[in-house]
Simulated scan of single mutants.
Amino acid sequence: MDAPATAIPFRFNRFLPYWAVLQTDLGQTLRSWVYRLWLIMMALAALGYVLYKLGAANAGEYQSVAVQTDDLLRALAIGSLSLISLLAVSSISSERGTIADSILSRGISRYQYFLAKWHARVVVVLATFVTVSVAVLVAYSVLFTAATNGSGVNLTTWGGIYAVAMLAAVLMVVVSWGVAIGAMSNGTVIGITIFWIVIFGGMIALSRLPSDYPNLKWLMDGLRNVLRGGVQTGDVVQFLAASVVLAAVGAFIGLGVFARRDV
């Protein structure tokens, strides 16, 4: 007589729904026209600016490398805000009609859904911006030598790392608040409107902080000094820590509201 088959116990991975939404959103974001437009815009702007400045240097119009890099990195960060805001706010607000199906029918909690969307958008935005910024720093290090720049190279390795990290931290705050506002809004258009009100209000509030505190105004006004290596590591750590706190506050506010509202 055959022995009875032994039932294999089924183990459910509680993080499986989170990973599924995270991977799906990463793929959707990378394939979206907004992301591709943003990537093309940054690549063309960086390439055009570097080639223009290289030609000017060869013609005898010398400019500090730290000043050039400062102008370019700030332009890339500020110029990206409109498309980044659309990527962040639309992460949840654009799926308002399918959220109920995802949460109620597919076994994923609201917390997992929100966290997956938040993490996916933060990873895509930061990885893309850091990659382009590092490419810019490498291009300046290779192309703008003392021979081609005349005045010498005053761009330090640690200064470049600090500058990119601090700008990426600012974008992390922007994305986190964008995803949170999108989760609390009934539509993408309303969400973007509220997003810009919050961002400009936050910038005004941060600009009122003491001048010795490494706030956003301090970063934008002194980025070239950071690139030269003229900043204390403690100030950079303080700025990054404050950015993480602001991003977490925005995300958890959005998560709290999203967890209690109707879908």
Results as ranks from 00 to 15, higher is better:
238 Q>D: 03
113 Y>D: 01
26 L>M: 08
167 L>H: 01
102 S>C: 09
145 T>D: 06
116 A>W: 05
230 G>A: 12
90 S>K: 05
61 E>N: 14
44 L>H: 03
252 F>K: 04
203 M>I: 12
215 N>I: 01
4 P>A: 15
132 V>S: 03
103 I>D: 01
95 E>N: 08
29 T>A: 01
248 A>E: 01
189 V>R: 10
68 Q>T: 11
12 F>V: 13
259 A>Y: 06
174 V>Y: 04
51 L>S: 13
91 S>K: 02
48 G>K: 09
140 Y>F: 13
203 M>P: 00
71 D>K: 11
92 I>V: 12
188 T>M: 06
124 V>E: 03
234 G>W: 07
13 N>F: 03
241 A>N: 10
80 S>R: 00
155 L>D: 04
191 G>C: 05
96 R>F: 02
75 A>L: 12
162 Y>K: 05
144 F>L: 10
78 I>T: 04
24 T>L: 15
171 L>Y: 05
112 Q>N: 02
176 S>P: 05
171 L>Q: 12
150 G>E: 05
15 F>C: 00
216 L>Y: 15
215 N>F: 00
4 P>N: 11
39 L>C: 02
63 Q>I: 11
46 A>C: 00
76 L>I: 09
31 R>N: 10
184 M>N: 07
129 F>C: 00
200 F>H: 08
45 A>N: 07
235 D>Q: 12
220 M>S: 14
105 S>K: 08
110 R>C: 07
239 F>W: 01
82 S>V: 15
120 A>E: 08
158 W>Q: 11
150 G>H: 07
119 H>V: 15
212 D>S: 15
156 T>Y: 05
196 W>N: 06
67 V>W: 12
201 G>D: 07
194 I>T: 10
27 G>P: 01
200 F>Q: 11
127 A>Y: 00
88 A>T: 03
116 A>S: 09
69 T>K: 03
172 M>S: 08
67 V>A: 14
229 G>W: 02
93 S>M: 10
261 R>P: 01
120 A>D: 02
201 G>M: 11
160 G>K: 03
242 A>Q: 08
161 I>L: 15
117 K>S: 10
105 S>I: 06
53 K>A: 12
230 G>Q: 14
248 A>P: 00
174 V>H: 13
148 T>L: 09
249 V>R: 04
86 L>K: 00
134 V>M: 06
192 I>C: 11
113 Y>L: 02
80 S>Y: 01
218 W>Y: 15
247 A>S: 09
261 R>T: 04
8 I>T: 14
185 S>A: 11
109 S>P: 07
201 G>V: 03
59 A>M: 08
36 R>V: 12
30 L>A: 06
53 K>S: 13
56 A>G: 02
50 V>P: 02
227 L>N: 05
195 F>Q: 10
203 M>A: 13
4 P>H: 13
